[in-house]
């Protein structure tokens, strides 16, 4: 089962290597990882997408917690949260499909951030399913390359 794990770490050199080394050294799988500074510049936030059965996920969260530089670990599967990912897709459609590409980009609330005589580069943000769907639709029209940021996630606040 896939889990989104949010990890607060000390913003120090070598921490990313400690985290990635933990995964590789113990045979855990990382599907994506994204890292960035938080409100407190001394703390970084990592969002790790991983998968495994309950026992493996338990080990992953415990092992992450055990690292000296890790402040907090939250398995977001256990809390209500929102996830987003961004993709940049460079499409080179045939002349007659150019309008269709623009229309699809619009449907997906994408923006054209670069264009050349033969290509458009589209920026789209959304959850994983939306991005997969977009790639699926554009693929037959000629995707030259795409790049994804990996997911970031944040817990929802209660309404009250």
């Amino acid at each position: 089962m896939r889990h989104t794990i949010s990890v607060l770490v000390e913003n120090k050199f070598g921490v990313l290597s400690r985290i990635s080394g933990l995964f590789s050294g113990r045979g855990f799988n990382i599907e994506s990882i994204s890292v960035g500074e938080t409100l407190d510049p001394q703390i970084s936030q990592m969002t790790i997408i991983t998968s495994g059965d309950d026992q493996i996920i338990e080990q992953i969260t415990k092992q992450l917690n055990k690292l000296v530089d890790v402040i907090k670990v939250v398995d977001l599967l256990e809390v209500d949260h929102v996830e987003r990912e961004m993709v940049l897709i460079k499409v080179s459609p045939r002349q007659e499909q150019k309008a269709e590409v623009l229309r699809v980009a619009e449907i997906f609330r994408g923006r054209i951030i670069d264009s050349s005589p033969k290509t458009y580069t589209i920026e789209v943000t959304g959850d994983e399913k939306k991005i997969e769907a977009l790639i699926g639709i554009l693929r037959p029209m000629g995707i030259k390359e795409f790049i994804r940021t990996g997911k970031i996630a944040i817990s929802r606040e209660g309404i009250k």
Partner: peptide, 8 residues
Amino acid sequence: IDPTSIRK
């Protein structure tokens, strides 16, 4: 004392 040792 080490939670990772439990159920490993």
